[in-house]
Design a binder for these strands. Structure first.
Length: 256
DNA sequence: ATGGCTAGGACCCCTAGA
């Protein structure tokens, strides 16, 4: 079983690239972030024609998430149970016996901003909810755009980024607290190329210079950990003509 | 060569992303 996450930065723009990517990478499930589409504009027919069932949850202009899967997802939920939120950031469903949570974590803008306060509250609510999801579904994957670079090795220039958004001690502590629920960063289960990033700024020729951050993650539960056989970032779509600023991350589970 | 962003919305500039 293969699962993937990709922040597409507008599905209206990126749909052809998503369909091309799925043809080359026929994963069992794919979660998308930043679809930036109201639900009535979601390209359901095109995705179903490509052989995927799909669930979506969006809003105008910002945010928006989707869950594509070969087998239809069931018990689909949207956003964080018990956390009132105007923003469409989370979609979850059970696919082939695995609880799949796709999330677009708040950006946070700057450590002294109101958006950072929202990010902290959102992270706290996410943790409490994921704890209960784990109790109900031991086979669980939490993946998406976390907007957190967990360690300095996930940052191209840790000095430049020290204390900046995505790299603050508070955000990194929240990441560790998620791990402490009984999750593991699938990417770090394997030897990886140094300077592995999942996002590169559109500006400053950042991709060409490989100046980026690893902020898109796949966390798997302890019950699934023995099944994880590979995890990689696919940089290829970042080389497309009109790319998203994020690359997909893929995990492979050797399910019995 | 020494490079300088993209998307959406309402508009020819602004917000937001990260």
């Amino acid at each position: 079983m293969r699962l993937a996450t990709w922040n597409v930065n507008s599905l209206a723009v990126r749909l052809p690239q998503v369909l091309d990517w799925l043809t080359a990478n026929p994963v069992d499930a794919l979660v998308l972030q930043e679809t930036k589409l109201t639900d009535d504009k979601f390209p359901r027919a095109e995705i179903e024609a490509a052989g995927y069932a799909v669930q979506w949850f969006g809003q105008k202009t910002y945010n928006g998430v989707a869950l594509l899967s070969r087998e239809p997802a069931h018990d689909v939920t949207k956003n964080i149970f018990g956390f009132a939120d105007e923003q469409a950031r989370v979609i979850a469903g059970t696919v082939d016996g695995v609880r799949v949570i796709g999330a677009y974590f708040p950006n946070g803008q700057a450590p002294d901003s109101e958006k950072f306060t929202y990010k902290m509250a959102w992270l706290q609510a996410l943790r409490d909810w994921v704890r209960s999801e784990l109790a109900a579904h031991p086979r669980l994957v939490l993946m998406g755009d976390f907007n957190i670079a967990p360690e300095d090795r996930d940052v191209h220039d840790p000095v430049l980024w020290a204390g900046q958004i995505h790299c603050t001690p508070q955000e990194r502590e929240h990441f560790r607290e998620l791990i402490a629920l009984g999750l593991v960063d699938a990417f770090r289960l394997f030897e990886q190329p140094p300077k592995s990033w999942s996002w590169w700024d559109y500006r400053n020729l950042a991709f060409r210079k490989n100046q980026g951050l690893r902020i898109d993650h796949i966390l798997v539960s302890e019950a699934l950990r023995p099944a994880v056989s590979a995890c990689m970032i696919d940089k290829l779509p970042r080389k497309n003509e009109r790319p998203s600023d994020h690359a997909p991350v893929v995990v492979e589970l050797s399910t019995a």
